[in-house]
Computed example of a mutant assay.
Amino acid sequence: MKKELSDYQSWVKANKSKRFSLLDYVHAKLNFDNISPDLAVALLQLYWPTFHEVDGFVFLKEEFSEKKYREVISNNEVQLEYWMNLISIESICSSATSKVQEYIAIRVTEMWRAKLKIDFPEKSFIVKKINDETEVFCVFYQPKFE
């Protein structure tokens, strides 16, 4: 996957004299490119999210709003969790190649699955990556709410 990361590869070439890892890259970007550490915290919420439970449903806390919840539930949407937890990877990082977006989606679903098992050991979830013609999505939902 590292070969797909063009900016990282430019840093590797610029630092030929030593081994340059992905952690070195994170350090360099955060400290030399004036990227706020807020971005690291925000990314953690994508990869290892906080969940919000309402009426037995589980949602990504960062994406949840009471207004959206009431709107979707009033439309008798049986796949409430599905629609409220569906995240487009392309919308988060549109400049990434499809291969990188695919990699991110795989990792996001693995981490969501692990976090859901930790936070809700009594519940069962479907956590998956979905590819359509132009985008890659990640989603989770409880099968009993399908």
Rank of each mutant, 00 (worst) to 15 (best):
M1H: 14
K3A: 13
E4A: 03
D7W: 03
Q9Y: 00
W11E: 15
V12H: 03
K16S: 14
S17Q: 12
S17E: 08
F20I: 06
S21M: 13
S21K: 06
D24G: 06
H27D: 15
K29H: 01
K29E: 12
D33R: 12
I35P: 14
P37N: 15
L43W: 05
W48M: 12
T50R: 15
F51Y: 04
H52K: 11
D55V: 12
G56S: 05
V58G: 00
L60K: 08
K61E: 08
E62F: 05
E63M: 12
F64L: 09
F64T: 03
S65P: 13
K67S: 06
K67F: 11
Y69H: 05
Y69A: 10
R70M: 13
R70G: 01
E71P: 07
S74R: 07
V78Y: 10
Q79E: 07
E81T: 02
E81A: 02
I89A: 02
I92W: 07
I92C: 15
C93G: 09
T97W: 07
S98H: 06
K99A: 10
Q101V: 07
Q101D: 13
I106M: 07
E110T: 03
W112Y: 05
L116K: 00
E122T: 02
F125W: 02
F125R: 00
V127Q: 00
K128T: 09
K128A: 10
E133I: 12
E133R: 09
E135K: 09
V136T: 14
F137I: 02
V139I: 10
F140N: 01
Q142M: 00
P143M: 05
K144M: 00
F145N: 08
E146V: 02
E146Q: 15
